[in-house]
C-alpha cells in the first residue's frame, strides 16, 4: 500500500517543491550573469519572496468568479504535478507508469489552456481577460505542434509510454535521430509555459496578464505552479529527446536531473535574452513555420522508424 500509493505522491510533491525552488534560483543566476543585480542573496531571495507573499493578503476584485479564481492556481499546480508524475527517473523509478503517458502529457497541455483561460477570465478584470484570450488563441497551435513532435518520438518506441520512449533511445538519442524534434519542442515549451519571449498571457504589456490582479498566497501558488510546469516540461523534453535516465557511469536519476537542469537552463536563458514576440508574429511563426516543420519532423520520424 505504501509503495503503491504514498511513494509516488511523495515523489511528486518533492519534485514540485525542489523543482520550483530550482527554477527560482536558476532564473536569478541567469539574470545576475546577464547583468541584472539581485538583492538579498540568490539562494535566500526566493524564500524571502515566498514569505512576503504568504504575509500579504489575497485581494478582491469587483464581483469575480471566486471559486474559479481561487481554484485556477491550484489546478495549474495539479496539472504540473500530473506532468511530473509521468516523468520516469529510471526504468523502475516513476510515479505513474501509465501506458498512455505521452497522451496524458498532451492532455496536461490541453487542460492547461482551460486553466489559464479560467484564471484570466474569473478575475473580472480587463487586462487579465486579454491575457486569457491570448493564451487560448495561441495555445491551440502549441498543442498541435507538441502533439506531432511527441507522436514522432512514440513511433520508434512503438508505444505511447515514456519509459518505452526512453528504452527506444538505448542506441541513439532522439535528439540526433529526429534533429527537428527538440528545437521545435523547446519553442513550443516556452509557449506552453508562457515563459520569456512567448510569455503573452502574463506579459508586461498587460501588467501581469492573467496574474495582474492576484496577490498574496494565490500569487505564490500561481508562481510555483508556473515554475513546476517548466520543470515538468523539461522532464518531458529530457525523456523524449535526451535519453532520459540513460547514460554511462552515473545512476539514472542523476543523469535525468542533469539533463533536466540543462533543458531548464536553456529555457531560462532564452527567456532572459529574447524580447517578447508580438502575438501576431507568434501566430505566424506557429502556423506558417513551426507547424509545417513539425509535419516534416513526423514524416522524417516515420521514415527512420521504417528504415530501422
Amino acid at each position: 500500500m505504501f509503495s503503491e500509493l504514498f511513494l509516488p505522491v511523495l515523489m511528486v510533491i518533492f519534485m514540485l517543491v525542489v523543482g520550483g525552488y530550482a527554477v527560482a534560483v536558476l532564473d536569478r543566476l541567469v539574470a545576475s550573469a546577464l547583468g541584472t543585480p539581485q538583492a538579498g542573496g540568490i539562494w535566500l531571495a526566493p524564500m524571502a519572496r515566498g514569505a512576503w507573499l504568504l504575509t500579504q493578503h489575497a485581494n478582491a476584485t469587483e464581483a469575480p468568479d471566486w471559486r474559479a479564481w481561487r481554484l485556477a492556481p491550484a489546478l495549474y499546480l495539479a496539472l504540473a504535478a500530473s506532468g511530473l508524475a509521468v516523468v520516469p527517473w529510471s526504468a523502475s523509478l516513476v510515479a505513474t507508469d501509465l501506458i498512455t503517458s505521452v497522451v496524458l502529457w498532451g492532455s496536461v497541455e490541453a487542460l492547461a489552456t482551460v486553466v489559464i483561460f479560467l484564471h484570466g477570465w474569473s478575475a473580472n478584470s480587463l487586462l487579465a481577460l486579454i491575457g486569457g484570450y491570448r493564451y487560448v488563441a495561441l495555445g491551440l497551435s502549441y498543442i498541435l505542434i507538441s502533439m506531432f513532435v511527441l507522436i514522432g518520438v512514440a513511433l520508434p518506441a512503438e508505444s505511447l509510454q515514456f519509459t518505452q520512449v526512453v528504452a527506444s533511445q538505448e542506441g541513439l538519442w532522439n535528439v540526433i535521430r529526429q534533429p527537428l524534434g527538440l528545437p521545435l519542442f523547446l519553442i513550443v515549451g516556452l509557449g506552453m509555459t508562457f515563459w520569456g519571449p512567448l510569455n503573452l498571457a502574463d506579459s508586461t504589456d498587460l501588467a501581469g496578464g492573467t496574474a495582474s490582479e492576484i496577490s498574496g498566497p494565490p500569487r505564490l501558488v500561481w508562481d510555483m505552479a508556473r515554475a513546476a510546469m517548466l520543470v515538468a516540461f523539461s522532464g518531458v523534453a529530457a525523456t523524449a529527446f535526451l535519453g532520459g535516465w540513460l547514460g554511462p557511469w552515473l545512476p539514472g536519476p542523476l543523469w535525468m536531473s542533469l539533463k533536466m537542469l540543462a533543458v531548464l537552463s536553456v529555457l531560462l536563458l532564452l527567456g532572459r535574452l529574447l524580447p517578447r514576440l508580438a502575438p501576431e508574429r507568434c501566430v505566424t511563426l506557429m502556423w506558417v513555420v513551426l507547424l509545417p516543420l513539425s509535419f516534416i519532423d513526423l514524416v522524417w520520424a516515420g521514415a527512420v522508424a521504417l528504415w530501422e
Partner: peptide
C-alpha cells in the same frame, strides 16, 4: 486519456466562442 484532451480543447473553444459572440461582457 483521449477524453481529457479532446474535451479540454472542445470546451475551451466552445466557452470562448460563446463569450466572444454572445454579447455578455466576458460571460460574468
Amino acid at each position: 486519456v483521449a477524453m481529457f484532451f479532446m474535451m479540454a480543447v472542445e470546451m475551451t473553444v466552445m466557452a470562448l466562442f460563446m463569450v466572444m459572440f454572445m454579447m455578455n461582457p466576458a460571460g460574468l
